[in-house]
Design a protein around this nucleic acid. Sequence first.
RNA 1: AGGCACGUAGCUCAGGGGGAGAGCACUACCCUGACACGGUAGGGGUCAAGGGUUCAAAUCCCUUCGUGCCUACCA
Length: 883
Amino acid sequence: MKNEIMTKGYEPKDVEDRLYEYWEKNNLFVADARSDDDPFCIVIPPPNVTGTLHMGHALNNTLQDILCRYKRMKGYNVLWQPGTDHAGIATQNVVEKDLTSKGTDRHAVGREKFVGMVWEWREKYGGLIINQLKRLGCSCDWTRERFTMDKGLSEAVREVFVSLYEEGLIYRGDYIINWCPRCHTALAELEVEHEETESHLYYIRYPFEKHDGHLVVATTRPETLLGDTAVAVNPEDKRYKDLSGANVLLPVLNKPIPVIFDKYVDTEFGTGALKITPAHDPNDFEIGNIHKLERIKVIDEDGKMNGQAGPYEGLDRFECRKRILDDLDEAGLLEKIEPYRNAIGHCYRCKTMIEPLLSKQWFVKVSPLAEEAMQAVKEGKTRIHPANWETVYFEWMKNIRDWCVSRQIWWGHRIPAWYCRECGEVSVAKVEPSNCKACQSDNLVQETDVLDTWFSSALWPFSTLGWPLLTRELKTFYPTSALVTGFDILFFWVARMMMMGLHFMGDVPFKDVYIHALVRDAEGKKMSKSKGNVIDPLVIMDEFGTDAFRFTLAAMAAQGRDIKLSEERITGYRHFVNKLWNAARLVLINLDSKGNLKVNERIYSLPDLWILTRIGQVSEDFSRAIDEYRFNDAAGLCYDFVWHEFCDWYLEMAKQGLYGADQTLRDSTMATAQEVLTAALKLLHPFMPFVTEEIWQKLPETRGSIMTAKFPEPADFASDEDSIEKMGLLMGCITGIRNIRGEMNISPSTRVKVVLDVHQEDEADVLRDNLGHIQALAKAEEITIGFGIPKPEGSASVVFGHNQAHVVLKGLLDFEQERERIRKEIVKIEKDISASNKKLSNKGFLKKAPAEIVAKVREKVETLSIKLTKLNQNLSFFEAIDD
RNA sequence: AGGCACGUAGCUCAGGGGGAGAGCACUACCCUGACACGGUAGGGGUCAAGGGUUCAAAUCCCUUCGUGCCUACCA
């Protein structure tokens, strides 16, 4: 690969797969649990096995990869722990869909066989997302890949479940779930589609038990009134303040139920009186809990009215609604009906209306765990970046409710609880018990529910490192260094990892949490398949190359902001990749001169010193930015440095040395160019792993992979603070001359005569020493330098610092145009000066502003005044001339 | 409804109390021996509106308008 001629443009396709293979083959991603180096560990947010790479993954994993590659080069012992999540419902759905297309379903297949089929599916397709992560360049230690349902992690899950149960932190209780009466399954919130539906609001009279009159209640679901156990009103509501202790009679059933007071009730809505059906409405369930109301289930798992429904038993819930309305009307209890629109939950699969149903579920009692988790962030053991997310975290932790961890699906960790068929005793154990601990019966049956997928995800930072075994990995890498994730799963996942980590490891799971932006489409909408607005990262990578794509994501990942991805922006960064490639090409083409330069022979020209000083500064700023998770700043630093300093100025000036006859100068220039290019490659490697590695391996003085190279530090480079100012003078001079050329429309091929009227000896020296550069970059010839040289006839002038450059344009100069140019400049400067003078004449400013600010403004006025004087002189010079 | 963000150049976005910035697009001139995915120069903004704090506000505070997201959804 060495010394191979580089192609004119960078072709990512030829490079990416080959280099990724090279890294993997050389075990460059593999972490060493026995190393004494400082550890740096990130656990990947495990993508669903059913997942395909989307923009969210791309951003999330690019940022993690940047951190990992950076830390490796900084000498850390890096472990990026990868793996996938079994994603209970999502995965089960994929296989069920397959069964449906074959005209069968999971119930026909049976549990055991069905679960077997899911495993088969996972074997076959579960690696898709992993390969896509590799395509993105992720440097995960794939030798340690884990799965939330593999043997070790399943053991961790059981261990945790049993411990929490034994500590009394897991219990079984009643809960309202979303039930589909047609599919016969509970649905997660995510699987419920809320649809705006035309409906009705029924006003029903509930007569008072002890006196005349009635309370009117508004409801959209009259059939549930059979299960009412109270009517609630707001305690602030003056209309109902006398009803304390009163009962009303439940219509149809004529059963007395109490009137209760609860702030939850909205006085503005309906009549301000709310019927409470704890067994069939989630909110009513909550209120029922607070007021210790009886829960009466009147609808069964088929959506039919049960024995508690009295005369309506056996009716379908919708049929029952009709009948009950008729009966109410007949009894004079139906006051009115209003049309109403509301969002009703439907089954995402069969569109059947969801029935909120009371059932027994398993819960984790989270408040003691949450308290610890909150404390850890307050004490700074875990820091959340950007910090404003800490508020959100605290808010949620404060209002946390017990966590319902049971799910009525088949794919997942089956809850390790066994019921005795003889006596009903519940045994929770790591391994299946042979006998009931109460009655010794061996007639046991295991709980059919599985655990919420987030239960195993909550253990991820330590279960992947080998827990419950006390492995070396655990010792070396726990607590992990950073967690990188989107805010959408701050609660689902981050908070729960905090709780579990603290509880079972006695320490936080990670020291830093970096919350990154969400990638949205051009309209700012969340990308989703149903909206059809997804941009496929793989398509982008094919079109633009992985490096350009990654760089774009990083450059746009400003903290806490959403990213609206635009292809134009990616195009811009693809150009940047190409620019880097061609800078390297320039260096490589001139390698004939890499030479036998001895260290003490090396010459440091002003541009050399300047660019070396700059790369040192940039290295420092870059590291600080990454350490503070300011990815966009780090990206911007590299971009500006490589393009606008290294390429635009340094390499252009280097050509002087490269194409000249002086061998030592050529060798020195090449030495600096190579040194800076190499350093820039290292800075950019975390962002653009492929192109940087490819160039690295073509450079003659590099060995192995750039991945193992030492990251640049300011101390690595020759440094000269003065070079910054001197170079500024030189650049100002060149820019000034170019400015005139541009404005006057002088063809680039035309060489111009330049007279430099200089103010100070030391500045004159700088310009004299770099005459060649001025000639080359400003396309000048015959440069004269002197003090107080009069403005030559037919010249346009520009002021830089305290100096002037007169560009002699005899014959080419349009006097009117030049007058106009100067006037324009004068107006601008006068405005600037007067603004500054206004500040300086403000006593408050002089008194209260920091001295350095005042000095700066003074200096500015001084500089601008000199410039103004010179401009005015030049203007009068031209005004004296008749066209 | 509540909470949290955000309104900066035509577009996509940085910046964040003391000189309005970048990329793309646009204009002019250039295929100059790394790169036309390039070079040089240029045009373009009341930093949403109004008020306040301050010597100084695009930046901090308040209000309004607009946009987006997250919760909760009104029975």
